[in-house]
Every structure is written in C-alpha cells, then in structure tokens.
Design a protein around this nucleic acid. Structure first.
Lengths: 355, 355
DNA sequence: CGGTGTCATGACATCGATGTCATAAGGCTA
DNA sequence: TAGCCTTATGACATCGATGTCATGACACCG
C-alpha cells in the first residue's frame, strides 16, 4: 500500500506538502496541488488511519456492544422486536458525525463482554454504546474503562450511567386509551413473562388507563402467556382465550404483550371461527412491521421505538464526547400508537351486545 | 491512556522488555515479568492497536459491507429473510480467527459503497465481505481495492470474484419433492417477483421436480404475487387463490415464494373457511423462524441458509488470506427442508377426493 | 532600497509499539 | 581458563502521518 512518502517522491515534493494537500490546512500552490493529486491518484493512495490516529491521539471510533447479530434468529427475535433496530438507529447518527462505528457481538454470552471491551480499548474507541436485547437492568458490571464515556441502551444500572430506555408504561397507557376510546370495556390482556421490566411497567400503564376511565381492573382477564416461542406456548394462549370466552362477559378485545403473541392469537381465534376484528379486536405491542403489516387485518399496536432509542443514545454519546451534554441522565423514549384494522369499536360489530 | 513507556517507567525496565512480556516472544525473568504485570495492572494499560498495526503492517481487520442494518425494517425484511443472518454467520467465524470485523452499512444507498470501501482502506482491512440483501447480480463495480481480497455473499459478478450464493434451484426442487412425496398432485405456486434470480431458479427447481415425477406443469397454477408487503399485495394473493380454487381441479397445496407470503395465505384461507392443513396444505420458503415457528400449524418450508452462507464466505476469505484457497470460485450452499405441520398428505384429509 | 509580511515549502521530531542489534552476566565445553 | 552459547535486558531505528519551526521568494510599505 502506497504511503505519503511514495506520493511525495512521485510528485517531487515533501511528505509534509502532501499532508497539506490532504488536509487543506495550509496554502499550497495550484500547480503543486495538482501534481500531488495526480500522484495520489495513480498510486491509489489512501492515508493510514493507524498513523493518523497515533499522531492525533484520536481514533474516531465508537464501540457498540450487542447480542443483536448473533441472536438474530434465537430467543431475542422470538421474544420480540429485533434489537438490531437499535443498532440501526445508532449507526445512522454515528455515520453522520463522521466517526466509525465498531460493532461487536457478544455471541449471546455475557462473559465475552470484557474481551470485547478490551478490543475496543486497543482501538482506543472514544465512547461505548451498550445495547441490551430487551428492557432490563444491566446484568453485569462493565469493566472499568478508564473514563471511556458509555451510554446504555434498553437497559440501566444503579450507578447513574446515562441510559436510554423505552417508555413501556406510557406506551401501554396510550395504547389502552385508544382501545378504551374505541368503546371497549371488557379488555383482556395477554402479558409478557412475569419478572420482566416491560411486563411490570406496561401492566402499570394498562391499569392506569383503566383507572383513568373509571373501569375496575379485572384480574381474570389478565394472563401471562409469553414463553418466547417455545412449544407449550400455543396451548397456553389457547387456554387463556378459552377462559376469557367462557365467562358470561367475554372480552371484546385482546391486548397482546407483543406482536408475535398477537399473530398467534389471530391463528387461534380464526380456527375457532371468531373473526378479527368483527367478533373481537386484537392489539399488539412492538410494531414489528413484518408482523403488524402482513397480518390481515393489519395490527393496531404500540410502537417500541428501537430505532429512535438507538439514534438518541448515539446522540447523547456524541454530546458527552463534545462536552455538550449532562453526564448522568436516563432518557425515556416514547413510541406512537399505530392504528390499523385490527381494532374497531365493538358497538358497530356487536349491534345486539348487552351493555 | 497509559503507554508502554509509562508501564516501563513504573516497572523500572525498558519499553522493549514490557513488549516482551506482552508478546511472550522472548525470555523474561520471573521477577521482571511480575513487576511489569503489576505495573500494567495498576495503570490499566492496554496496548494501542494503531501503533501495533503500524509497525506490523497488519490490521487484523475484515470489512463487511451490508445494507442489513439500515434496512432491517424496510423492504428487505418485507421481501424475505433478514440478510443480517449472513452477517451473524460471518461474525462467528471471523471472531474465532481472532480478527476483528468492521461492519459498515450502506444505509440502503449503493452510492455510499465507495466511501465505505475507502474507510476500510484507511483502516487497512485485510479482506472485504460484500453482502447483498437477496440473491442477485452485483449491482455495482466495487472500487478497485488494490488487491484487497473480496468475497461476495448472496450476489455474484461476471469477473470471477469468489462468491457464495444459496441453492435456490435445489432448495425448491427438494421442497417440491417433499410435497410430491406427501401425495400432492395439484400444486399451486405463488412465486416471488418476476426478474429476480430466486424466482427464476426456484421455478426451475419446481419444474424439474414435477417433471421428475411425471406431472405436467400447469401454468394456471402459478402466479407471481410478491409485492414486498406493499398494500395491493393482499388483494393480489386473494385473486390468485380465487382463481386457483375456481377451477374444477383445485390445488391441494399452496407453495409460497417465501414465509411472509405463506403467512398472508394462512390468513386469507382461514377467512374463507378453508382450514390449513386439513383442507389445503401450505409450504413456504426461507425458514424465517419468527414466522415458520409461530404460525399455527407451524410451516413446512425450505431453509434459506443465510447463516451458513455467511460462515462459509468468511471461511473462504480467511483461506484466501492465508493462501489456502483457490481464488476464483462460486460456492452454492444448500439448505434443508424443514418439515412442520402445514404439509400433510391430501389423501387423509380429502377422503372423498376424486382419483 | 531596506524592513516586514505573506506564501509556499521542507527538515525534523513525534505518536506507541516492536524489530534489530548490542551488551552483560553466567554457565558450559574443550 | 579461554571461547562460546544462552539468558536477560536495553539502545535505537522504524512504521506513516502530522505538528513545530525554519527558510527562501516575493510583494508591499515607507
């Protein structure tokens, strides 16, 4: 690979002059500039990042740690929206700042993280984004990174590390409010697995919406049915639906913990001759577009704003690096409710329903 | 950040001795080694990749170009299996070779590629993987990369660049053979969009399987219905199914160009009271597990072996770098047929069917 | 016409690690 | 015991780019 010395020799100038042409940081006569440009061109010269970053002590690199890549078809996809969208959001922001994103994958094993961080340090990354596959407390102590600014995404810790998380409570609140506004009063809710951050927060939002509307919370209409796509899940959902519809005041809408569950619910309902949305409305969560837009009718769902979270986190990190941002803050990102065909008002479809 | 000089000073030795401890490439007395290790530890010393790669003229980096990240929720997901799985496969292999993968995203715009390649060259990547989002001819001429070995994945060019592609013909052949073996004779086929490599090759495989079984190809049972998830698609599929079932010899199985189409077909069939698989079997293509495993009944489908392709491509690249592999070769990767509940033999479910 | 800028350029040192060569202290062989 | 090898260590140059300082050539001012 050609070096700046090769270019200099070929153009008959000193390396420093070539450097000046490259960086446009000092006047160079037009003639010299052309000669240098010509030499760079014929030699296919590209400056060495290693040499530059050594001299400048700046790497221009941002490290991102994720399990998104290695787990793309495993639990995390089964569990919900691919966290890859977070990576995408971050990428788009970092790219525009003309830094380079170094993406490392945990391969699903957290004990890999220290190695990844070490590799990042070897590359002298200027900041680190740590992306979790779903909203949760940070599961490990990140190795002390000698003051490498770090931003957590989709997770949070106890030490005030800047974090960007989704507004699970508010999302479910707004979604439930849409359901209520459509006229529903008997609302079933198939939640995600117990113990998860999202499960807890969304249930809070759900109850707050009910309470705001003056509707009592009915525990018999709530069941946790998320088994991350493992075999027993289908039966679990079937059972829950059976129970819901066995009562004398069956629900007019099924809220699902995520779009994948909603997809399963579509199948089960249709198999029993219950039409969506004519007989019962269905809403999801995540706005996993592959599902929400392909299902028929298309799915009304709350957006889990992964892309926006990634972008926001990247921006926070860049701000930290430039000293523009306050260091310790947790940012909660809201998502929209996506209104589609699966949610209709029960009145129009159950004209004779007892009220 | 601490340097090797800082460590040397603290340990009371020369930098070169620290280097020897780091690389274990020359004998160092136990006492000195301990002192150095201690110093590295207290200072949190991590060697600089930039300085190392400058001296050794080796970067240990592999560049990967993809649109997978930026397009994760756009056309390419709508079109089929996320090409991110290719990235995952490559990542796992590269990681094991203790090189570092530098992933760059095109942001969906091909005119970004030259910039990405330039960035790669600045980092002196030792090889490049170019990943396409679906099987297609390479759409651009990669910038002359001064002998940086390159492997194409999911695409191919005319110049004998090493490439790794899926076995579309063989995959559809084997899948169709499974369908025939199950006893089906009237086989409908909703193909992907015309003009695509996959469409052409899979139709070839489909026809070869029919012909091997001595069944005449019936064009009235074949329709292109893939609009990449755009609005008109649902009607297009409905129409196709209407036409199929209007004839006097309706199909007993619907082969779908991908799993997403199969998902749409499930919905449409059920809406019309046609049960899957009791009344009609359905098979897909891709093995997009989020779909194939969540649908009920689970979907029989041909695996699009993206993970294996990525891994294979990475291995080929590493072999090229070590001089182990022949430089020019196109590798065709086979996928399995995944047998699940959506394909059953028509005889058991149509006991009264003519013939 | 000498002094003072500005422009255009180059020599040299430097960033952090490591390859090359030198050196000193022992231990072993002949 | 001289000669030689091995072990343990350091001095110095080097990788490629760039910051600092110096220099020569003009142009302009008084």
């Amino acid at each position: 690979m050609a070096t700046i010395y090769d270019v200099a020799k070929r153009a008959g100038v000193s390396p420093k002059t070539v450097s000046r042409v490259l960086n446009k940081d000092a006047p160079v006569s037009a003639k010299t500039r052309d000669a240098v440009a010509q030499a760079m061109d014929t030699l296919g010269y590209v400056p060495s990042h290693a040499a530059r970053s050594m001299k400048s002590n700046k790497s221009g690199l941002i490290g991102l740690i994720t399990g998104a890549i290695s787990s793309a078809d495993e639990i995390s996809v089964a569990a919900g929206l691919p966290d890859l969208l977070i990576v995408q959001g971050a990428q788009s922001v970092i790219e525009r700042s003309n830094k380079t994103l170094l993406i490392s994958d945990t391969g699903g094993r957290l004990d890999n993280v220290p190695d990844l961080v070490r590799t990042f340090q070897e590359h002298r990354v200027e900041g680190i984004l740590y992306v979790a596959d779903f909203h949760k407390p940070l599961e490990l102590t990140l190795p002390a990174t000698q003051a490498v600014p770090t931003v957590l995404v989709n997770c949070f810790d106890q030490h005030g590390t800047p974090a960007v998380v989704p507004d699970d409570e508010g999302g479910q609140y707004t979604l439930t409010k849409s359901v209520l506004d459509a006229g529903h009063r008997r609302i079933a809710y198939l939640t995600l697995a117990p113990g998860q951050e999202a499960t807890r927060l969304r249930l809070q939002g759900f109850r707050r919406a009910l309470s705001d509307a003056g509707i009592p919370f009915d525990p018999s209409l709530v069941r946790a049915t998320d088994l991350f796509g493992t075999p027993g899940e289908h039966e679990l959902i079937s059972d829950a639906l059976d129970t819901f519809f066995a009562g004398d005041a069956p629900p007019t809408v099924i809220c699902c913990g995520n779009d994948r569950l909603a997809m399963a619910v579509y199948g089960i309902l249709r198999r029993r001759g219950i039409a969506v949305p004519e007989d019962v409305s269905v809403v999801g969560y995540d706005d996993h577009r592959l599902i929400s837009e392909t299902l028929y009718p298309a799915l009304t769902t709350a957006e889990l704003p992964y892309g926006a979270m990634g972008a926001r986190a990247a921006q926070v990190l860049l701000d930290l690096l430039s000293g523009t941002a306050p260091p310790d803050e947790t940012i909660i990102v809201r998502g929209d409710v996506k209104h589609r065909g699966s949610l209709v008002t029960p009145a129009t479809t159950h004209p004779g329903a007892v009220d």
